[in-house]
């Protein structure tokens, strides 16, 4: 339950801000000049705020659409991300956002039209025959707050008109109402992050159980949406072999391979400073305390362990799944090496 909304004072009358506030009628509203006054100060405790996060309604300024870090693509020639939301109402123990920001406040940038303009600019720069994927869940969960933000509905209508651009909605939520309320579009991938339930129940704090996510995927598949499965990060834990094998079996029991646009795998990975900050926030957490290795400038699960997990997962995939739909981080590494040069639909 959001108890406090901070809003940049020049947005008080913005129609989208008003509709967000209408959906949270019990929240107190505090106006500020710039969301950074609330979000950026150092003397904040992310853990304490996470128990009662506020919502910050703001206008995104500066660069609206950015290139994704290398190695995270799902087959398009160019990959970008844009963040209408910073932070997340869930509290996954391994979430890198907690090491990235001082505040756990949920920042909602409501100038959607400016994001759309920036997406159009990127599309305009594509070469002949090139397509671009736009990831929307990089700095937060794409759908977790959709009932408040109305993000999916507005951006699906926008992307529907732009076939050279793909929208990836990445989520651990089951908030699929906006999608099910309309016809599916060809250039959207609704990607669900999944881990074996035994570990997700412990670490995906506040997020819906994995079985509910699988059920939501099944519903979307039936409605004709293209899906993504994100086994990223692969989480090393007691019984991981059994856990991932069962998860993959359960996934394909719910989702026909024909509905799966892509499946991606990646190690638990953090920029070094982010990991240090996360360890300070969770000093007693064994997942974060475990040894890591440096790989491509980030700290990752030791590679031999990660590669074992990745290999097992790929081996467990059904034969009917075209392996060119499987993407391993970093691109061109691992078992799907060399098979990522095209969109797989």
């Amino acid at each position: 339950m959001i108890e406090t909304i901070y809003i940049e004072s020049d947005l008080l009358e913005h129609p989208r801000a008003r509709s967000v506030m209408k959906r949270l009628p019990r929240a107190r509203v505090v106006s500020c000049d710039h969301y950074g006054e609330v979000f950026n100060p150092h003397a904040q405790d992310f853990r304490l705020q996470k128990e009662n996060p506020s919502l910050l309604i703001a206008r995104k300024r500066g660069r609206m659409v950015l290139p994704v870090p290398p190695g995270s693509g799902i087959g398009a020639e160019q990959d970008f991300y844009f963040s209408h939301l910073l932070n997340c109402p869930y509290d996954c123990r391994y979430c890198f956002l907690q090491g990235s920001y001082n505040s756990a406040g949920l920042v909602l940038f409501i100038n959607y039209e400016d994001f759309m303009t920036a997406v159009d600019e990127r599309i305009g720069e594509l070469g002949d025959g090139e397509r671009a994927c736009f990831f929307s869940g990089y700095d937060g969960d794409s759908l977790a707050l959709d009932a408040v933000t109305g993000f999916a509905g507005e951006f699906l209508s926008f992307f529907e008109q732009r076939p050279r651009a793909w929208l990836e909605l990445r989520t651990r939520s089951v908030n699929t109402a906006a999608l099910l309320a309309r016809e599916p579009i060809d250039n959207c991938v609704v990607a669900f992050s999944l881990s074996p339930p035994a570990v997700a129940d412990r670490l995906d704090i506040g997020a819906p159980p994995v079985r509910s996510r699988l059920k939501a995927m099944a519903g979307l598949a039936r409605a004709g949406w293209k899906l993504g499965a994100r086994l990223d990060p692969l989480l090393f834990h007691d019984g991981w072999e059994r856990g991932y094998k069962q998860l993959i079996d359960d996934l394909f029991a719910c989702v026909p391979t024909s509905s799966l646009h892509s499946l991606s795998l990646g190690p638990l990975r953090f920029p070094p400073k982010v990991l240090e900050k996360m360890r300070r926030l969770h000093p007693t957490d064994p997942l974060l305390a475990a040894p890591t290795e440096e790989w491509l400038g980030v700290r990752v699960t030791p590679r031999d362990i990660h590669e074992q997990m990745q290999r097992l997962c790929v081996e467990c995939l059904p034969a009917s799944l075209d392996k060119s739909r499987v993407f391993c981080w970093p691109a061109n590494e691992g078992l799907a090496r060399g098979e990522q040069s095209r969109l797989a639909v």
Binding site: E3, T4, Y6, R28, V30, C32, D33, E37, V38, P41, Q44, L48, Q49, E51, N52, S54
Partner: peptide
């Protein structure tokens, strides 16, 4: 809910406790 310093113009925003029953004001 916010603390404004007339002299320097600086504003600070205390993160209000969960379930605060009292009213708030700048």
């Amino acid at each position: 809910e916010s603390v404004h310093e007339e002299a320097g113009g600086r504003v600070r925003y205390p993160a209000l406790p969960a379930g605060l029953a009292l009213g708030t004001a700048p």
